[in-house]
Every structure is written in C-alpha cells, then in structure tokens.
C-alpha cells in the first residue's frame, strides 16, 4: 500500500506573498506526471498548495500540536479529523496565521504557501489572510446589510472595481444569489442559519482568495442546510483549495479527497498533545486505513 509522495510535484509560478500583488481567484495550473503506487491505480499528481513541515504549536509551555508534516493539494478538499483536543482546529488556524491573535500561541516549523513560508520574517499576516479565507463554526455575519457584509473585505483591501458586480459574483458562487438578490440592503441577520453560512462563504470568497479554510462549517446547521453546503464545497473546489475541519466523519467521507487523522497523546504529566497519525486518500482511509489508531477512531471504537 504505497503512499503517494509529492516529491516530483511542481508548484505553479506565482507572485510571492510579500509583494502583495493581486492574484486571480484560484486558477492554479495543474502540471504533473502520473505516479504509480503499488496496489493503487495511477493518480495524476496535483500541485501542492501548502507544504507543511515540522509544524509544532505551543500555547505557553503547553504543546498543542506535535510535529506535523503534510502536503495539501490544490483544487482538492482536505479534511482534518480526530477526537477533541487533537489539535485539528489549531492546525487549521495555522494556515492563515489566525493563531497570531492569541497572545500565548507560538508556531514553529514551516508552512510553504506557493513556495513561500507564511511564517517567514517579512510576511505580513494581514496579507496572508487576504489570500486565505476562513469560514467559522457558527455563522458570524457582521451586523450590516448583506451587501455590506460581502463588500467589507474588498473595501478594506482597497478594491477599486465595480462592487455591485463583485457582490453578485460572490453570492452566485456561494449559491445564494437567487435567494437574496432582491434584499441586498437588508440585515444579514434576517437570513436563516444555512443562508448565513453561505453568506459567510460568499464574504470569504469576495477577497478572491485561492484557499478556503472551514472550521466545522456545518456543525450548527440542520441536515438540509448541511447537505447544501457540502454540495457547494464540491463545486467550489474547481476554483479554490479547501481545508475543512470536521468532527463528523461521514461528512469527511462524503466530501473530501484526502483526509488527515489526528489523535491526542496524553503524557504522564497530563499534557494533551495532538499528533498527525495518517494522511491519505479518503477512500483508502475509510476502506482500509494503515494505522490501527485510525481504524479504531473511524469505526467508533476510540475517541
């Protein structure tokens, strides 16, 4: 059972983050040679969008994540699963430097984004967050109109183009335009939970990122709304790369292309540190995982 190593993947040429040039929305170039693994059909290699090496996260003296190394591919949905406290949300928030907002947080290791380490010295986290959007567990639209919610990101980034068109495009991509096109000036809070979450997705898309990070985006929604968002995610991966944290394993199985399983190690001191156990194609993880810990977790016998 071979693991697909991305040793010969090529990264798309693109401007570096530090210069802050504008990037078109998620149009990566897929170049690659077919890899042949044992017992697996050949898969075309895709570009790596995040190259994570030796990622460790500390809150003060408490280590939340131990040494994670993984490569996230473009135009795929990558799911991070695992029991509570395994660090999956912490890892997700590393990708857009949201952990910087926590005083005691310290991140070690590198995360290469299009070849540039986002934790490099000269890197401005604000720039990082403009290209890497985030959707949170509970929908959190601003107490503004639907229009202003979407326009917020572009406005503060100095967008000079036609805002009406941008708002319409974002809402269309988030499968929400038809439902709100006649009430753009109304408060975002008038929408249902599922609609608010799609609004948050549209808001994140409006800044033309090429990555969407989603932290349990459906956990506060009903099953129908959940299903719509899952279908939306699958459509969105054409233009974006998506990383999703979910505690719903069936959801990870339904939507993701690759799945990373994290577990939590409890030391004698009682410190709970998260650790990446296995990272593979989703169908492999759910039909024949390599690690017993993975098997135990996904069959519900652990965690």
């Amino acid at each position: 059972m071979g693991e697909d190593q991305l040793t010969d993947s090529t990264t798309a040429a693109g401007p570096t983050i530090a210069t802050g040039e504008a990037r078109p929305a998620g149009r990566g170039v897929s170049v690659g040679s077919a890899l042949r693994g044992t017992g697996r059909p050949a898969e075309p290699a895709q570009n790596t969008i995040f190259d994570v090496r030796g990622l460790r996260v500390f809150y003060g003296s408490f280590q939340a994540v131990a040494d994670a190394t993984m490569a996230i591919r473009e135009h795929e949905i990558t799911a991070l699963i695992g029991p509570s406290g395994c660090g999956k949300t912490t890892v997700l928030r590393c990708f857009n430097r949201m952990n910087d907002l926590i005083d005691t947080a310290r991140v070690e290791g590198t995360i290469l984004y299009h070849g540039t380490d986002i934790y490099g010295e000269k890197v401005d986290p604000v720039e990082v967050r403009r290209r890497i959007g985030m959707v949170f567990q509970k929908p959190n639209p601003f107490p503004k109109s639907i229009y202003d919610n979407i326009a917020f990101g572009p406005r503060i980034a100095g967008y000079k183009g036609n805002m009406d068109d941008l708002v319409e495009e974002s809402l269309t991509r988030a499968a929400l335009w038809d439902e709100v096109s006649d009430k753009l000036k109304e408060s975002a809070y008038a929408l249902s939970g599922g609609q608010q979450q799609r609004l948050c997705i549209a808001r994140a898309i409006a800044t033309s990122p090429d990555v969407l990070l989603m932290d349990e985006p459906c956990s506060s929604l009903d099953p129908i709304a959940t299903l719509r968002i899952e279908e939306l995610m699958i459509e969105l991966k054409r233009d974006y790369s998506i990383i999703i944290v979910t505690h719903n394993m069936q959801q990870a199985a339904r939507v993701s292309d690759r799945t990373a399983f994290f577990t939590v190690d409890v030391k004698q001191t009682g410190m709970r540190t998260g650790r990446l156990v296995e990272f593979d194609a989703t169908d492999a993880i759910f039909t024949n995982p390599r690690e017993k810990q993975t098997e135990d977790y996904i069959t519900g016998r652990f965690g």
Partner: peptide, 9 residues
C-alpha cells in the same frame, strides 16, 4: 450504522 474500514469489509 454507516460502518467503515474493517467493519464494512
């Protein structure tokens, strides 16, 4: 029960 992995097999 939506079994997976070895249970499914």
């Amino acid at each position: 029960q939506q079994p997976v992995a070895s249970d499914l097999r």
